[in-house]
């Protein structure tokens, strides 16, 4: 068991390493090719070491700030709004899922049209939201909320619906009140589904917030991104933002997985499975001992 467990971890590390090497190799081959054929290769595909050098260079690129400084200060405005919109969207998504579960009418009225939200292109929606709200920060919040809303609502509802009939029957036998059915069975059952929704929504909220930035020149990651692309500042700011956003997006998903382990005790127990297997074995032995005193001879039908 222990050995198997170790082998599995090694395999996972191997996978990560494999992909990292593959991506870096592909990137560098591309960068070398670009460097040989194009006049401004850094605009298309710079070498990774060039990007790293830009990240750690003390040279000011804009308003006396280094490239990393620009990225980190503008990230604050964007990510804070992404987080706010994510929280609002996820909260509303959860409540709507609950409302749809509570009322068949609400579900019939809303659910089929809910996915339309997914189909509206954010870029098209963003200027309209900006015009309505009249404020870039509020727009970031609203767009991030709209995008977070659907995956959370749809997944949570799926979670409610995945509760088996047995569980309802059990609660009915114990004369459970509706409120108890929800707090003790339905909501806890839906939590893993809710987290799946949150893991999908978090990077989307960040992407949305960055996209909204590009609409106005008021700072934020997206704004710096487009300025950098228009050569208003070093192009390496662009590359840094690309990597930084990718990192934050992946990190947000991991962060949510980590929170899930904290709130959902069954996930925590996954780590203890090896230990309990030993105990189960002991149980098996003791019953076998009981058995040996008697003739088995089970007459089956």
């Amino acid at each position: 068991m222990r050995k198997k467990h170790l082998a599995l971890t090694e395999k996972k590390w191997f996978q990560i390493l494999f992909w990292a090497v593959l991506v870096i190799a592909a990137w560098e081959i591309g960068a070398t090719a670009v460097a040989m054929t194009k006049r401004t290769p850094e605009n298309i595909l710079p070498h990774l070491y060039q990007i790293l050098a830009a990240a750690f260079s003390g040279k000011a690129v804009s308003g006396g700030m280094t490239a990393s400084g620009v990225v980190l200060t503008s990230a604050g405005a964007t990510l804070l709004r992404a987080l706010g919109g994510f929280a609002i969207g996820a909260g509303l998504g959860f409540l709507l899922a609950l409302a749809m579960k509570l009322s068949g009418l609400v579900e019939k009225l809303i659910f089929p049209y809910l996915m339309l939200i997914q189909l509206i292109p954010v870029l098209g929606l963003a200027p309209i939201i900006l015009a309505i709200t009249g404020d870039i920060n509020r727009s970031r919040l609203v767009i991030a909320a709209i995008l977070s809303f659907y995956p959370v609502a749809a997944n949570t509802l799926a979670g409610f619906k995945a509760v088996s009939k047995d569980k309802y029957d059990l609660m009915f036998t114990y004369a459970a009140k509706k409120r108890q059915l929800y707090t003790k069975v339905l909501i806890p059952s839906a939590i893993p589904y809710l987290f799946t929704g949150l893991k999908i929504a978090a990077p989307m909220a960040i992407t949305a917030s960055i996209l909204v930035d590009t609409l106005q020149g008021d700072g934020g990651l997206g704004c710096m991104l487009s300025q950098s692309l228009k050569h208003a500042m070093s192009i390496y700011v662009f590359w840094l933002i690309v990597f930084f956003s990718a990192f934050i997006g992946i990190f947000s998903t991991y962060l949510i997985s980590w929170i899930e382990i904290l709130v959902y005790p069954e996930k925590r127990s996954a780590a203890g499975i090896g230990r309990s297997a030993g105990k189960e074995k002991k149980y098996g032995r003791s019953t076998e001992k009981n058995r040996t005193q008697k003739e088995p001879g089970p007459e089956t039908l």
Partner: peptide
């Protein structure tokens, strides 16, 4: 609460420990 129903499948709640599963109907009482 005079019936105890034992279903064919155990119908346990996997986010509750064994003890908390046993406590569930008592919470309803």
């Amino acid at each position: 609460h005079k019936f105890g129903f034992v279903f064919q499948s155990p119908v346990l709640f996997d986010w509750r420990t064994v003890k908390k599963n046993v406590e569930l109907p008592l919470e309803m009482m």
